[in-house]
Design a binder for these strands. Sequence first.
DNA 1: TTGTATGCGTTATCAT
DNA 2: ATGATAACGCATACAA
Lengths: 336, 336
Amino acid sequence: MRVTIKDISRYSGVSTSTVSRVLTKNPKVSEEALRKVQEAIDALGYIPNSAARSLVNKKRGMIGLIVPELENPYYTEIIHGVEEAASAKGFGTALSCHMDSAVDKQSIFKLLELGVDGIIHAGPLQNDQLIDYLRMQKVPYVLLGRKLKGSDCSYVICNDFQSAYQATRYLLDLGHRQIGFLFGKKNSYSSIQKYHGYLAALKDAGVPAKEALIRTGSLSYRGGYEAAEDLAEGQTEFTAVLSGNDMMAIGARDAFLKRGLSIPEDISLMGIDDIFWARVRGIDLTTIHVPQYEMGSKCFEILWRKIEEPQSGPEHCVLDGHLMERSSCRRITPAM
Amino acid sequence: MRVTIKDISRYSGVSTSTVSRVLTKNPKVSEEALRKVQEAIDALGYIPNSAARSLVNKKRGMIGLIVPELENPYYTEIIHGVEEAASAKGFGTALSCHMDSAVDKQSIFKLLELGVDGIIHAGPLQNDQLIDYLRMQKVPYVLLGRKLKGSDCSYVICNDFQSAYQATRYLLDLGHRQIGFLFGKKNSYSSIQKYHGYLAALKDAGVPAKEALIRTGSLSYRGGYEAAEDLAEGQTEFTAVLSGNDMMAIGARDAFLKRGLSIPEDISLMGIDDIFWARVRGIDLTTIHVPQYEMGSKCFEILWRKIEEPQSGPEHCVLDGHLMERSSCRRITPAM
DNA sequence: TTGTATGCGTTATCAT
DNA sequence: ATGATAACGCATACAA
């Protein structure tokens, strides 16, 4: 049995309410009492029971964070950002990790059961049911990395359209005209935005988009690898490839290298995210830097405000990515 | 205000006790009552309040996991293993992440305050104070990746001595005699074990160890980079380098490459861990595979048993690593 | 300034 | 099988 305020009360000779006042920093406590209570707390190693506490004031000091996976450093950076921001405000973080968005509801249920004060959802959202559920449960929540059309919920995103546009534009400027595009399933907001960014950049440059150069797959190393193989096996020539994220790009890279193609000599390759590994030698991936850590911390701050002020309206935060030029792309003379 | 059993009671027309019985799967409930309660639960979207629950039965259904960082995929794999094992048993995971072991006590305090049923500590342990604190608080806990000498606490580790021995042995078998060793600070159990494994392998092969070939640093990319630079700037020749973990090895790799050295032509390089990135092309690091995911899941299971059966004695689990041969090492003819 | 009493949501004990 | 009630640890309104 852990030490409770009753023990402190007994040890220090004051009532439990006085102990409680000390704990809540209520100024109406005498020097004398304060000292005695502090002593008792130290001596007994008292730790407040936030479960009991939350029962009376409905605050748990904990948020729930849902991510689809941990293999992609993109997510771990986000977790890091969330966790540090939360920690700075005295909040704990309950982590839930699963690919399968079919179990989303279960995991939200579990998080709510644990008593989190709010939820950050960084995974892909299949549909609006989840949001309806969250809304019904009246839990503050913030979406990270995607927004829902026609919904008024808070979110933090990177400007995916602009990221893909920028990347495509960069490849175009290097002289590439046949640019492959590997991205996620078309039901994800973020992937669709990137897709449109890619198309828009091509259009603005007067370069026709070719269906034959576009592949979808999972936003993972494996997904990139497979999509790249498929692309390479096709009949259509290409000199550059843009991937929806760095993991896919690195998977694609390995697929190309395995086929004996060189990067950037044969194929210029770009990713989006700028994960840690993009910059190590031997990978050296030109990519669009996405401020993952900042997205995480910003996300917590928005959630925090919603927790403190439940009536407050939705907040949106859109961050911009920027080009990180490395050595996976080269300039070519466009074949006319 | 969230839905409570009172609401369910009112909606379904039975007492709160009966509702509670349904919730706890108590068989003494009539078909009729069960049905009505279920209906109410579905209709109202009821979620049990585990804070209130824990107040009476002292079980929170949540564990705390402490890791030093998230940049090293070694830790994220461990988190993954812990999280999935916990999730399978209906447990939530509260994550705490910090490098500075000086804040360890604070974070354990926070975790305990949140009400975790047990703690997994995967970070470096500066001293035994932490353990004393955990013991004093009577919290079940398991150490991951290190054990404490002379302490009877549960732990899950990889056989670090054997890993380093194996790696060194491999390099020796390839003909290397001048083998550099980059590892963590000597106050960490795991680093010391690896150090001894390295020395033992040299000794068994009749190769004298040279202080000039040994460097310590932080077990990170940066740490490896710096240690490797320092080693390369030294006067002593070497043809191979073993790093305490893959992150260090990859950092060292970049430092060597930057100096114009090739791997494995000029230097054979090995790591320990076998993180995801060790196998991608362009890195292709020969290393010792450490079952990180399994360590995480095993660790949770041990903790779980301690939670269910607090009287049970300490459990120890020592897993073995095995060689993953890739292309960062080459055979040489020893210079006599 | 301090102590007493009440309630938070839930389970368990005790009657019925 | 069911319901009333106490108890869990804590914060607070109220009384002193």
